[in-house]
Every structure is written in structure tokens, then in C-alpha cells.
Amino acid sequence: MPAGIWAKCPRCRNLIYRKELERNLKVCPKCSYHHRLTAVERLEITLDENSFQEYDAGLASTDPLGFESYPDKLSEAQAKTEQAEAVLTGEGTIEGWRTVTGALDFYFMGGSMGSAVGEKVARAAERAHAQRLPLLIFSASGGARMQEGVLSLMQLAKTSAAIGRLHDAGLPYLSVMCDPTTGGVTASFAFLGDVILAEPGALIGFAGRRVIEQTIRRKLPEDFQTAEFCLQKGLLDMVVPRTEMRSALSRLLAFVGAPRLVPVQIEPAPAAQP
């Protein structure tokens, strides 16, 4: 993202003092436009300070098909985002509630899901399962990563199967769709949440607007596939402004009975009875 003192809001075109924008969690103070966040920023504004313990930081994509210029694109994305892959996962607390949380990074190859993203999401679900913690995933993705061909399509199956086991174990999974959440990520874990939330104005859909317009030979309404549109069509549970997301998640975590981070009570071992 370009540095500088002023940032231009892509929606209302106003120049906003960058510090003010950041204080407001990158929501435009003039028009409430929710600027896209990196995965790091997302975790920073969501989790309690210093509570994040990352999983699988060293896990990255390889180039299984020998796909033209994929390794270059990966290196570029890694250099740009200073992340190994398009998702960050780990443990963290929200107002004290313990969670396993993941955040996709749209700035890393459009948040696309290849083998590494699928693997990290599946492992996050499995760790949530093993530790009996709620799973929370913030999605922001253009879909499957085509440079990994069908292997990326198989990540839909891998992640959905892992989430299925979480449901079987009676563990909660909250899905938050951020701008944009489209394609393969919507057709797998993003739409499998027990409760599905979205940020205002987020683009959410399976097929792209252009493809749909070419197919139906009509222009689509302006608000098509927005979070608000999806809410009205019954596809989501709630649209929550970024500034209220933490408290909304905290209430949901309380409701579903997430373990609360409290000073560990060390119970004395029962004395051995002769």
C-alpha cells in the first residue's frame, strides 16, 4: 500500500488524514467505506494485544505443476506482504475468549487458495478440534489459485472436510466474509460457518460479475453480490461494521461457550489412595 500522509478514499474520493483513517480501523470517516486490510492488520484489530501465537509460519506453496511464472508471482507476493502465504493462522483471544483464528490476505495473490492455504486452514480446523477451541476465519479471496490446477480445487474438499469434523465434534465455527470473498473460498469454508458475518459493502459471490453479465446478457444492479444484498437474500446472518466486529465476535464466542482465558487453576493432584 502506498505510504504518505493522506489517503484517498476509493469510494467518496475524499482525502483522509492517514492517521485518522488508521485510528478508525481503516473505515472512511466520511462515507464508512471499509478499506481492505492485510491479514496482519486484520489480526491486529481483532485479537487482544500480544495474544496471537502463529501456527505453521514456515508453510508455503510450491509449484506442483511447473506453471509458467508461478514461482515469480509467489516470490513477489512474499516480498510485498512479508508473509509466506495468503493466510495467517494461529491462536489468539478476543476480549479474553480463546480462539483459533485465521485471516486470508487479499494482498497475497488475491488471497487465492492453493495447497498451502488449504493446508493451513485444514490444520487450523484440526487444532481447534484437538484443543476444543472455536474456529474463526476471516475470508478475503478471489478464489482458487489456478496456478495449482485441480490441486487448488481439491483444497475446497480438504478444508470443507476438516470443518465437517469440527461440526461433528460440536465445536463452533464463525466465518467472517471481508471484501472480496468470491469463487472457491465461498464454495468451501467461508459458507460453512455456524454463524456467517460480513463486513459492510464486501463483495461476496461465487461467479464474477462480468461472467454473469455475459451469461445472462443483462447489466446487474449496482448492489449485486454486496454483503447487504446477500443478507437480504438470506445467505448471511449479519453484516457488522468493522468498529463493532470485536464486540460482536466476543458476544458470539460467549454464546457458544468458548473457553475463557483465565489464570490457570492448577488443581492439586488427587492423593493416591492406598
Partner: peptide, 26 residues
Amino acid sequence: GAYPGDEAEERGQAEAIARNIQEMSR
């Protein structure tokens, strides 16, 4: 592929696919 139409989107194409994938896995 799944039909890329406006009504398909409105009725939850992504959710329907995700649901099937998950349910078939178990």
C-alpha cells in the same frame, strides 16, 4: 461448471456447492 447466473447467485450457489462438498466428505 455451475451455472453463472444472477438467480443462481441469489439462491446461494456457493453455499450449495460448499454444503455438498462437506456432506460428501462425511
